Amino acid sequence: MALPLTLSVLPAKADLLSDIQSQGELKCAVYSDVPPFSAPDPKTRQLVGMDVDLCNALAKQMGVKLQLMPTSIEARIAVIATGRADVLIANLAYTKTRGKQIQFSDPYYVAKEMLLVKKPNADKMLADFKNKRISATKGTTSEQSIVLKGGKPLTFQDAASAFLALEQNKAVGFVTNTMTGIKMINQAKKEGIDLAMIKEPMALEPIGIGMKRDEPALLAKVNDSLKAMDDDGTIDKIWATWIGPNTEYKMVREERVQPLASLKFEALE
């Protein structure tokens, strides 16, 4: 007598890359209004910026059309975790917490948290600011970096107030990313205030593309695409257009696309 054959019906594992390829479209989340990464063009009202160009280049490399998904700083992780977008390109720094919520591509550059000080303190080392009051925006990785380096965080709800604390000598330094720091130093100079940036970074923040966890095929495809974009000069061209040496940010791209594990850095929470 033949025994009944019991078939175990398991749900097919989702493969986001296959879905993207079959639909012929990549949903790429970007900021709704954070220049120079993604913001409305004053004339056309279309989103433009470094991250928009990266989305376009990634979609082209993957052989699909692009659908931009504007999002806010607060919602950018959720838009990926809930599957509303396929990838997130929003100047996204790797942190331990984010690494548990979504997966990251290989970094395409490494942002730095930097300490801004009054000009007379420009030649000091970070160790000289241990146990000193240093300002930052509340709840940011800038604040975390102050704790990491042994300083005393003096936090504010916005960057302008934290920066003012330095100008008014309520803090000996102000921490922000390199790009913002350069803009603020230039702005202060126009107001007759000489500021400088300590050369040693407070913290390193690898910037990558965010994706939903447990999507190995998509991760591999995005990493391969980034490497190709790096090798053919696409990322360099986009960088030069938006934040390069001939822009107000005067940023020099120092790192190439590489695995996160190959970078020597202390991840922030």
Results as ranks from 00 to 15, higher is better:
E74Q: 02
L88N: 01
M69I: 15
A81R: 14
P70E: 06
G83H: 11
R76N: 13
S72V: 06
P70L: 01
M69P: 02
I73Y: 15
K60G: 01
I77T: 05
P70D: 09
K65Y: 10
L92H: 07
A75D: 14
I89F: 06
L66P: 01
P70N: 11
R76T: 10
Q67K: 15
Q61L: 09
V79K: 01
E74S: 02
L88C: 03
R76M: 13
R84P: 00
E74A: 08
T82H: 12
M69E: 08
L68K: 07
L88V: 02
Q67A: 15
I80Y: 08
L68Y: 08
A90T: 14
L92Q: 08
G63K: 07
A93P: 01
R76K: 15
V64N: 14
A78C: 00
T82R: 15
D86E: 13
I73N: 13
L66N: 03
V79E: 04
N91I: 03
Q67N: 15
K60L: 02
R76C: 04
A78G: 00
R76F: 12
I89P: 03
N91G: 12
V87M: 10
V87Y: 07
L66M: 05
E74V: 00
L92P: 02
A81I: 00
I89V: 14
K60R: 04
A75P: 00
V64H: 13
N91F: 08
A90Q: 13
L88M: 05
R76V: 08
S72I: 04
P70H: 11
M62D: 05
G63M: 04
T71R: 07
T71P: 05
V64G: 13
Q67S: 14
G63N: 08
M62I: 04
M69D: 03
V64P: 11
I73L: 14
A93L: 06
I89K: 04
I77Q: 02
I77W: 02
E74D: 11
G83T: 09
G63E: 10
I80Q: 05
G63F: 12
G63A: 10
A78H: 01
M69K: 13
I89N: 09
L66V: 07
I89R: 06
R76L: 12
A78S: 10
G63L: 09
I77R: 02
K65Q: 13
T71E: 11
A93V: 02
I80E: 11
L68W: 11
V87L: 06
V87I: 12
N91E: 13
A81P: 03
L92C: 03
E74F: 07
L88E: 00
D86I: 09
P70T: 08
L66S: 06
P70I: 05
Q61M: 08
Q67T: 13
A93W: 03
D86G: 11
N91M: 09
V64A: 13
L66K: 04
K65F: 13
Q67I: 09
L66W: 06
L88S: 00
K65G: 15
T82P: 03
L66Q: 07
N91C: 03
G63R: 11
V64M: 11
T82A: 12
G83S: 09
A75Q: 12
T82C: 07
